[in-house]
C-alpha cells in the first residue's frame, strides 16, 4: 500500500512535466519492472492463446499453437503455468507444467509425465521461459541505468527507461537482462537476455499493443536468437481472459485431465 501511495504521489508530480532523466521523483527501477509485469500479465488467474511462428533465414518454417493457463502461487507470488499444445496435429495433447521449481512434460499419447530440466527446449526455437508467464520483478533485482531511445518492433523510436535486471532467485531463467520500458506507461518495449558469461542469448521486442482485460497489452513478441540472428520466433497472443483455475491443476497428476476446450 505504501508503494501505491508513493506512486500515486509520484504520478501527480510527474504528470505536468515528465522526467527526462532519472531523479529522486522517478519511480524505483523495481517498481517500473512491477508495472511492466502488470502490463504483460493480465491478472491473477487467466488463460490465453499463443501462436508461435519460426523464421529461419527470413522465411517462415513452421508454426505452433498453445494455450497457456496461469495462476499466481499465493506463497511465492510467482505464476504457475500450464501450457497445452493444440497445433500442429503431431503435438496435440502434449502439456507442460511449471510450478515453483518443478517442470513436467506430459504426452497424452504415452500417458506419462516426465520431469524435465528448465533448460530443455520443447517448442521449436523458443525456450520454455519465452512462453511461460512470469513476474520478472520477483525473480530479478532491477537497477535504473537511465533514459534511452529504443526501437519498437515496428521501427519507431521510443523514449524509454533502460533497466538492468540481475538474477535474484534461483528460479530466474536468465542471469542478466537489459530491459527497456516506455517512459510514462512502463510498457515493455525490448529486452536483451544474457548468460552468466555475458553472452547475448536473445533479443525480444514487445509490440502490437491491443486492448485486453482492461489495459493495453502486447500481443506480439519477436524473439531473435543472440547467437544466430537468422533464427527468429514470433509469439502472437490472443484470447486473453480471466479464468478461475483450481490450485490442484498445477501438479503432475492433473495434467492428463486438463480440458481441451
Amino acid at each position: 500500500m505504501k508503494t501505491i501511495l508513493t506512486l500515486f504521489a509520484l504520478g501527480f508530480a510527474l504528470a505536468p512535466a515528465p522526467a527526462i532523466v532519472a531523479s529522486a521523483d522517478t519511480p524505483s527501477a523495481q517498481d517500473m519492472v512491477r508495472a511492466a509485469d502488470a502490463i504483460r500479465n493480465p491478472g491473477q488467474s487467466f488463460m490465453l492463446r499463443n501462436k508461435l511462428t519460426e523464421y529461419v533465414g527470413g522465411s517462415a518454417r513452421g508454426s505452433y499453437g498453445i494455450i497457456v493457463y496461469a495462476k499466481t502461487d499465493p506463497a511465492s507470488g510467482q505464476y504457475q503455468n500450464i501450457v497445452r499444445y493444440v497445433a500442429p496435429a503431431r503435438d496435440q495433447g502434449k502439456l507442460l507444467l511449471l510450478s515453483g521449481t518443478t517442470l513436467w512434460f506430459y504426452d497424452s499419447a504415452s500417458k506419462s509425465a516426465v520431469r524435465i530440466a528448465p533448460q530443455q527446449r520443447l517448442i521449436g526455437q523458443a525456450s520454455n521461459g519465452d512462453v511461460l508467464t512470469a513476474n520478472l520483478s520477483l525473480d530479478y533485482k532491477a537497477q535504473l541505468k537511465g533514459p534511452a531511445t529504443v526501437a519498437s518492433s515496428d521501427g519507431k523510436d521510443i523514449g524509454a527507461w533502460e533497466l538492468t535486471l540481475t538474477r535474484a532467485t534461483k528460479d530466474a531463467v536468465y542471469d542478466r537482462m537489459t530491459y527497456w520500458v516506455e517512459k510514462g506507461s512502463y510498457r515493455p518495449i525490448k529486452a536483451n537476455f544474457y548468460s552468466a558469461s555475458g553472452r547475448l542469448l536473445k533479443i525480444a521486442f514487445f509490440g502490437k499493443y491491443v486492448q485486453a482485460q482492461g489495459a493495453m497489452r502486447p500481443s506480439e513478441t519477436i524473439i531473435i536468437d543472440g547467437v544466430d540472428p537468422k533464427l527468429v520466433t514470433t509469439i502472437n497472443t490472443s484470447g486473453i481472459q480471466e479464468k478461475s483455475i483450481p490450485s490442484y491443476w498445477f501438479q503432475r497428476d492433473y495434467l492428463a485431465r486438463i480440458p481441451f476446450n
Partner: peptide
C-alpha cells in the same frame, strides 16, 4: 500490480509517448 499500473499510466503518461508504441503494425 494492476492497480499500480492503472494509477501510474493514468497520472503520469504523456500522450505522445503512448502514440509512439506501434498499435498499428507496419
Amino acid at each position: 500490480p494492476m492497480l499500480l499500473l492503472g494509477l501510474v499510466a493514468l497520472l503520469s503518461e504523456p500522450a505522445g509517448a503512448r502514440q509512439a508504441v506501434g498499435v498499428e503494425p507496419g
